[in-house]
Amino acid sequence: MSSTEYASAVAAVKAMESSLLTHSDMEQLINARTVSELKAIAGSKNAEASTLEDVWEMIRSYAPDSRELTILLYKNDFHDLKAGLKAMFSGRDADEYYIYPSNIESGILKKLLSSKEFDSLPAYMAETAAQAYDLLTRTMDGQLSDSLIDSSALAAIQRDSDSFGGAFMQKYAQLTTVCADIKTAYRCALMGKPRQFMEIAVCGSRELDKESLIRAAMGGVESLMAFLESTSYKDAAAILKESPAQFEKWCDDVIMEHAESARMQAFGVEPLAAYYIAKEAELKNLRIITVCQECGADRETVMERMRKLYV
């Protein structure tokens, strides 16, 4: 599809970008003395006027072809799969655990899982659903099943961005996978998880080879850091060594920096994807400020956790 096909959608998104919260808006929110003051400021800036689901619906309605954009929702889809399977095994209702927006309507997902019609799920998750169900049936190990689903989500993001995504989405997939793999390997190294577990939990990518990452994590945290320092992610290693919370922030920030590369584009699907990522980060920042305010955290703590903004 020609990039100019997205002219209308990109123009609409650019108009919507002007309503994203700026640095000074965030400053005002951080400086709020009470939760009610924070809510009043957020309300005055229409900060919570639209949910991520509204944003997604809006982007989808403007985009002439939203197939590539659906990759952005894979992580939500796979999260919902985890919630659905666990609810099935524990006999609970998963409704409150589903994340929106997603590519599969929660009612349909629930129905397909309960009837074990895994083949009727979207192709990118059908096999994973069957494998995770089988794993849970055999082992009742929720953590292992979650790890399988998480690494399959990353594999699906990479595979589909290679198959029908452009360079922007491929880079997004690569960054998402690398960040998640480093976090997984770090946790596995800390907890001394066996190789068998890591082989399921680590996805691997062109940037960070799965086998090398597992081998490094098997040697403990120091060995993992030494490995990361030998790659192009040595900055990440330094931050992770300092603070895992800072590393989480770094992960979100590198994806935001990537999204910023699409900000100047006048045509194409990229500005739409970037806007979705920007809105996601904005809502995350609002949650961070709210939680910190509720916990009585100081300004410095809030600032440390604030994610990079798009505007």
Binding site: T4, A7, S8, A9, V10, A11, A12, V13, K14, A15, M16, Y62
Partner: peptide, 12 residues
């Protein structure tokens, strides 16, 4: 082409 882009902005 400009009309398409313009319509996108005006819709918002």
């Amino acid at each position: 082409l400009v009309g398409e882009a313009a319509a996108g902005v005006v819709s918002v």
